[in-house]
Simulated assay, not measured.
Amino acid sequence: MPHTVGYAPGVYDLFHIGHLNILRHARSRCDYLVAGVVSDEMAALAKGNRPVIPLVERLEIVRSIRYVDAAFVETVPDKLETWQQVRFDVIFKGDDWRGTPKGEKLESDFRPVGVEVVYFPYTVHTSSTQLRGALDALAGGAAATLSRGAEG
């Protein structure tokens, strides 16, 4: 009986419904799901800023989701290098990667080793970037209120 190992990489910062949806859908497409939790340093390289939630906490949150069989700390940008350590059969990404240079590179990198790239619908209405922006705006508003209070 074939045993399909799936890999769902992500920063998983400010865990939200989009993260849960990816993990749920991924688990339905494999027998064993490994969630790759991107390190703080790798997230900063990829997104330009460090996650709000520290790695050890993000790892514990993701590891505790019932759809996840194992969590792996991703410390290198090359997914093929990660594959050499984890040995998954399918990798799951949001469909915002489909048809982009990053998505096409992912597909061409994995084609020779037989790893399938599966895209799931990206949760447009909720993202960690949007949540971070809202938090930053709230923090900015609070700082402005505090400074106005100090002036008055």
Rank of each mutant, 00 (worst) to 15 (best):
G152I: 11
M1W: 08
T123K: 12
H25N: 13
G6S: 10
S128L: 00
R87V: 13
P77H: 00
D109M: 15
H125T: 14
V73F: 09
E107V: 12
I17N: 04
V115Y: 03
V38A: 14
T123Q: 11
R50L: 11
L146K: 00
G99H: 01
T100I: 12
F120E: 07
R29D: 13
E74Y: 00
L23E: 02
P112D: 06
W83K: 02
E57G: 02
R148W: 08
V124S: 06
L20V: 11
E57L: 10
G140C: 04
L55T: 06
S64K: 00
V52G: 02
I91K: 07
C30I: 08
D13S: 03
A143H: 07
A70W: 04
V62M: 03
D31N: 14
A71K: 01
Q130K: 14
R111F: 10
A70M: 04
V5K: 13
F72K: 00
G36E: 08
R24K: 15
R50P: 00
E81N: 08
Y7V: 04
H3K: 12
L20H: 07
R29L: 15
Y122Q: 05
Q84M: 13
D40C: 05
G140P: 00
L23N: 01
E104M: 12
G18E: 11
R27Q: 10
E151C: 01
N49L: 08
R24I: 11
D89P: 02
V124T: 10
A144C: 01
T100L: 15
G149C: 07
V62P: 07
V73Y: 08
S108D: 13
E116P: 01
I91A: 10
A70Q: 14
L80Y: 08
